[in-house]
């Protein structure tokens, strides 16, 4: 069997034996490149988080939009009713973190692809990372500090409170 030139253009990890030493080391995927392990982890994360997000978001859309009164049921009381249940708190928290990190990494990839100037890339990614951090921190704090049963100035429950507040 002859080895053509095109074979040497496709170095793949784990099959070095037939032509080891014949590929310039800088084209090898194995070895100690600094960004290699991070990019590999990011690649795996996109697939794992993506599969989880399909379930998380499809259930989110079904519960909020397709059952009961659909879009008209969504108000303060609806959110309060959901977050009274720790399962929905955990559900929304997981969705928030995974979606922001998945979307943030996707945007990072797109910026790397299209912004050719070093300074432009740096600026766009700085804005991106700041936005992702702000949104994740804000969303997490909202979920954990949410108070469903609010009182007015005279100590009466607000009308918008969910019905379970009467029993508290």
């Amino acid at each position: 069997m002859t080895t053509t030139k095109s074979d040497a253009l496709l170095p793949a990890q784990g099959i070095e034996a037939p032509r080891s030493g014949r590929i310039d080391p800088k084209y090898l995927r194995s070895g100690s490149s600094k960004s290699g392990s991070f990019e590999m982890a990011a690649w795996v994360f996109m697939r794992v988080s993506g599969a989880a997000l399909v379930v998380l978001i499809f259930v989110h859309l079904t519960v909020n939009l397709l059952v009961g009164e659909g879009i008209h049921q969504i108000d303060f009381g609806f959110v309060a009713g959901k977050w009274a249940n720790p399962v929905w708190q955990f559900w929304d928290l997981t969705m928030l973190w995974l979606a922001m990190l998945h979307g943030g990494n996707g945007m990072r990839t797109i910026i790397n692809d299209y912004a050719e100037k070093d300074s432009t890339r740096m600026w766009l990614k700085s804005i991106l990372y700041l936005s992702v951090i702000v949104i994740i921190v804000l969303g997490t704090m909202v979920i954990f500090t949410f108070e469903p049963c609010l009182l007015d100035g005279s100590g009466q429950l607000l009308e918008s409170s969910p019905s379970f507040c009467q029993n508290v």
Partner: peptide
Amino acid sequence: VGIFFFLLVHVLDTSLVRVSPEAY
């Protein structure tokens, strides 16, 4: 990209539950 920008807006509008029921 479209979903990402909606997500930013959606977390911000949901955060209004911490401002007041009327605002949300």
